[in-house]
């Protein structure tokens, strides 16, 4: 990539894909609306439908794999368990859905499981799509535009980078300890025992790095008292502003109506 291309990459948040190019605030409002609807909508179709629709959206902007992978594990682990548990331990009686040996699974149980799953799926697909389609830098810039102090956005952003970095450090320490004969692989108990001696050097090195890091930041004018320039610009439009207000209004109305029907049921 030459410098001109880099300028463009840095100077514009446009990536040429509809969902990626939306302002982070719009995506945040959208996710908020999706989650609210997941709570208020009666029945179980909403969560599953939302997951499918967002899968399509993710596919159009090259995020199909990321989104699909996470949602698949949510589907298998959480939703599967939820339906199973609700179905097996349902005490309402009623119509039997299927009989497995000594267990009878009631239709009511399955429905209750599906309803709970719908809420989980609504929450998780909205959040997963939001995080997958939003670059953290742009999200923080948007928050700064909404008066979030730069020090707060710094803390959040640096955490995004620090966690994988600590993972790398942890692996290095573990390799060094393995080289000195500490067992780090095997049963759960062995792994647990190996975890504790790793924790100490990891934390201590993080603390000592923190001192140098804060001095390095200071050198870069972190505490210099002036309005900061930002190379990256987050694009927004009147249409998006209107869409955000519209979304909130429609969702509020839908939530009230949906909630009413849920209450009736």
């Amino acid at each position: 990539m030459d410098l001109n291309q880099l300028h463009q990459l840095v100077a514009s948040s446009r990536r040429g894909r509809f969902w990626l190019d939306l302002n982070p605030m719009t995506k945040m409002v959208l996710a908020f609306c999706e989650v609210s609807l997941a709570i208020c909508m009666p029945g179980f179709a909403y969560g599953f439908l939302l997951m499918a629709v967002l899968m399509l959206c993710a596919a159009t902007c090259g995020l199909g794999k990321t989104y699909g992978k996470i949602m698949l594990s949510v589907l298998v682990i959480f939703v599967g368990l939820m339906i199973l548990a609700r179905a097996l331990f349902y005490e309402g009686g009623g119509e039997v859905f299927v009989t497995l040996g000594r267990f009878s699974i009631y239709k009511g149980g399955v429905l209750a499981g599906l309803r709970a799953s719908s809420v989980i799926l609504g929450f998780s697909s909205a959040l997963v799509f939001f995080y997958a389609s939003t670059e953290p830098e742009y999200l923080m810039l948007t928050l700064e535009q909404y008066r979030c102090p730069p020090k707060a956005t710094f803390v959040i952003l640096s955490t995004f980078q620090m966690i994988p970095q600590m993972g790398v450090n942890a692996k290095t320490i573990q390799d060094a300890q393995r080289a000195r004969g500490i067992e780090t692989e095997g049963s759960l108990w062995v792994r647990a025992k190996a975890f504790i001696p790793m924790l100490m050097p990891l934390l201590l090195s993080s603390f000592s790095a923190a001192e140098e890091k804060s001095l390095a930041l200071e050198t870069r004018g972190f505490n210099y008292d002036s309005p900061k320039t930002r190379l990256r610009i987050v694009e927004d439009s009147k249409a998006q502003k209107a869409a955000r207000i519209g979304l909130i209004a429609v969702t509020a109305a839908a939530c009230v109506t949906g909630g009413y029907f849920k209450w009736l049921a």
């Binding site: 840095v10 640096s158 980078q161 390095a216």
Partner: peptide, 13 residues
């Protein structure tokens, strides 16, 4: 390794 800001995605930034 302790001198980068920890908040930037490219060396340029």
């Amino acid at each position: 390794f302790n001198q980068n800001s920890g908040v930037k995605a490219t060396v340029y930034e």
